[in-house]
Write a protein that binds this DNA or RNA. Structure first.
Lengths: 123, 123
DNA sequence: GAGATGTGCTAGTATATGTGTAACACAATA
DNA sequence: TATTGTGTTACACATATACTAGCACATCTC
């Protein structure tokens, strides 16, 4: 799986890396049981520091997207906690929807947008 | 309108302030034409520095939620740019939905969540 | 044993954030 | 005219975060 980092972005590198991996899982380019490159390999591929990759992996582990095995490295392993996932999603959506609502984005337009995005995830 | 800041939050104070004002507009507690407290007043009320408030106001102006009049201060004034609003919303949703998708949150559950949130906005 | 791995540690630089003080130009008002 | 309140700008300072760098260690694979 190809990782692309925008070094001019205002988003931290480790956040970009986390998001790309999460997107990879959502779009099935990464599947349960797949292994991620080692922190050193990934760091070399992207051209960043090992510790930055390690930070991303560690956070992904804490958030339940991968598990880390000293023998095999980082493995995609989803820890499904739906209640927590819904809560976290709501926190994100509250502000995002408020912004849209101020800009007169209608409820149906949001639903349509959700469908567009979801079409690329579950197929 | 009461502003509440969580000083222990990992979110920057000026971001919290921006979000609360945006939420205020979305829930109609703030309406088009309403004036916000001056940067010094708001700073005193919350117990933070003037510059932090000024940063929030300036960003809110850049994002088209208020306009700033030297005589009257900050005034709620929505600059409706729906296309831009939809693009920004999509960027936010892509990652948020990917996380949920990984955690097996279904499409219908997301739609339901959207409705819940929207019910508090447009009434 | 040799090599690769995750992990922990220290240290440095750069940027973001928040505070503090001060000054400026402008508008409203006494 | 003088005062007050406004947004704006500038500078300095402290703290936290992000990223890099190098080193060391225990573990695992070959």
């Amino acid at each position: 799986m190809v990782i692309e980092i925008d070094f001019n972005s205002d988003e931290a590198i480790y956040v970009q890396l986390m998001n790309q991996i999460i997107l990879g899982i959502a779009t099935s380019r990464l599947q349960e049981g797949d292994t991620l490159p080692s922190v050193r390999q990934m760091a070399d591929n992207i051209g960043i520091n090992m510790h930055t990759v390690n930070k991303a992996y560690t956070l992904l582990k804490q958030e339940g997207f991968v598990s880390i095995d000293r023998r095999r490295g980082a493995i995609v392993a989803i820890d499904v906690d739906k209640i927590k996932a819904l809560e976290e999603m709501k926190e994100n959506l509250v502000v995002a929807l408020a912004k849209g609502c101020c800009k007169k984005v209608s409820r149906s337009e949001v639903h349509q947008l959700i469908d567009e995005i979801f079409d690329e995830y579950d197929l």
